Simulated scan of single mutants.
Amino acid sequence: MTKVTAEQLATARGCVLGLMLGDAIGATGGNVPASGTLRATSAGQLACFTVEGIIRANIRGTHKGICHPPSVVRHAYTRWAALQGIPGIKRWQEEDWPDGWLAQVPALAVRRGSAPATVSALQAQPIWGAEDLTWHSTGAHALTRILPAGLNRWWGPEPGRFAAEVASTTHGPEAADAAALGATVVANLVKGQTIDKATELAQRECQSFTKVMTGLPLSAALHAARDQPRQLQVLTQLVPDSRAASALAGAVYVALSYADPAQLLDALMFAASVPHGRHVAVAAGAFLGAAHGVEALPVGLVSRLELAWVADVLARDLLSEFLDGPSGSGYDDPPDPRWWDRYPGW
């Protein structure tokens, strides 16, 4: 019998599928075609590998006792890059790699936009745990791919710190700060906080370890949403570029401007309509999906998502891994003998 509650499942599925929906809508610039598949971009693909990496990190820690989770998640990104055929990616073993069930999903092997900072970091530093290189990118992928880590609020005390550590494996301090804040917003939504309260708390909870986005970095977005909601000019000013910090501020503004569950699709269309809005839509989708649950997502569009089934399975498996322990502990027969093959613990 599972220990996962219906509320937890609705929240996790809402967060991950909301992220994927925002990714697909963002890619269209808000001009969603009337029919056909809604394809994921590299942002959605990387988010899938983040979830898989978190699951595999927990399995490694449970079975081996020694684990550096950010390095295991980084290894997940190398599998994504290898599947994409990106040159200069270290092979971790000659046979049966990339491994795990995600490596069998054809859509994840198709290049859908670039992730230059992530790719260059993976090419330049192929060794786990190496500390000799420092990354400087401020790009939004550091934020968008890590947001499901906020679901760790159910089993981890500081998902924001973990998110920053993962982001730091490929991006610079500002982007890592944005990742920490974004994941903590999700974590507070998991606790049942409203979007504005979740954001206010995240700013305070991350103050002890943020390096660039110190103080109350999201206050402008919060005030703008209260005083001038749903204004394209305001959103454009909050998101002047494709930095992670800008995407985060824009997502907070959008999520607060369209806080009613019935407005979720309007929120994503609004986010996608500004020049740098595609990453805003990804983050806003994750926030609103976590806040309102999977039932708030428009079924007609979710059913058209290229990676809907993949994202849904990952959300369910993430909860199962931490709350049900299907792989066991390494001392007894696992409840699910196939779990290790699906998520090898390394």
Score class of each variant (00 low, 15 high):
Ser35His: 05
Gly36Ile: 04
Gly36Tyr: 03
Gly36His: 04
Thr37Lys: 13
Thr37Cys: 12
Leu38Gln: 02
Leu38Ile: 06
Leu38Cys: 04
Arg39Trp: 07
Arg39Ser: 10
Thr41Ala: 06
Thr41Ser: 15
Ser42His: 10
Ala43Gly: 08
Ala43His: 05
Gly44Pro: 00
Gln45Asn: 03
Ala47Lys: 03
Ala47His: 02
Ala47Gln: 05
Cys48Gly: 00
Cys48Ile: 00
Val51Cys: 00
Val51Thr: 05
Glu52Asp: 15
Gly53Val: 06
Gly53Arg: 08
Arg56Tyr: 12
Asn58Phe: 14
Ile59Tyr: 07
Thr62Met: 14
Thr62Arg: 15
Thr62Tyr: 04
Thr62Ile: 10
His63Lys: 09
Lys64Arg: 14
Gly65Val: 07
Ile66Met: 13
Cys67Gln: 08
His68Gln: 12
His68Trp: 13
His68Cys: 08
Pro69Ala: 07
Pro69Tyr: 06
Pro69Lys: 07
Pro70Glu: 10
Pro70Gln: 11
Ser71Leu: 04
Ser71Phe: 08
Val72Thr: 15
Val72Glu: 15
Val72Ser: 12
Val73Pro: 12
Arg74His: 09
Ala76Lys: 06
Tyr77Lys: 12
Tyr77Glu: 09
Thr78Ser: 15
Thr78Trp: 11
Arg79Pro: 03
Trp80Ser: 04
Trp80Thr: 07
Trp80Asp: 07
Ala81Gly: 10
Ala81Ser: 13
Ala82Gly: 09
Gln84Glu: 10
Gly85Ser: 11
Gly85Met: 10
Gly85Lys: 11
Ile86Val: 15
Pro87Gln: 03
Pro87Met: 03
Pro87Lys: 07
Pro87Ala: 08
Gly88Ala: 08
Ile89Val: 12
Ile89Thr: 08
Lys90Thr: 08
Lys90Gly: 00
Arg91Lys: 14
Trp92Val: 05
Trp92Ser: 01
Trp92Leu: 14
Gln93Leu: 01
Gln93Met: 08
Gln93Thr: 12
Glu95Gln: 13
Glu95Val: 10
Glu95Ser: 13
Asp96His: 14
Asp96Asn: 15
Trp97Glu: 03
Trp97Phe: 01
Pro98Asp: 07
Pro98Cys: 10
Asp99Trp: 08
Gly100Ile: 08
Trp101Val: 10
Trp101Ala: 09
Trp101Lys: 06
Leu102Gln: 05
Leu102Trp: 01
Leu102Ser: 05
Ala103Asn: 07
Ala103Lys: 03
Ala103Glu: 04
Gln104Gly: 10
Val105Ile: 15
Val105Cys: 12
Val105Asn: 08
Pro106Leu: 01
Leu108Asp: 04
Leu108Phe: 02
Ala109Trp: 01
Arg111Leu: 13
Arg112Leu: 04
Arg112Trp: 05
Arg112Lys: 14
Ser114Arg: 13
Ser114Ile: 01
Ser114Lys: 10
Ser114Met: 09
Ala115Thr: 00
Ala115Trp: 01
Ala117Trp: 01
Thr118Cys: 11
Thr118His: 11
Val119Cys: 00
Val119His: 00
Ser120Leu: 12
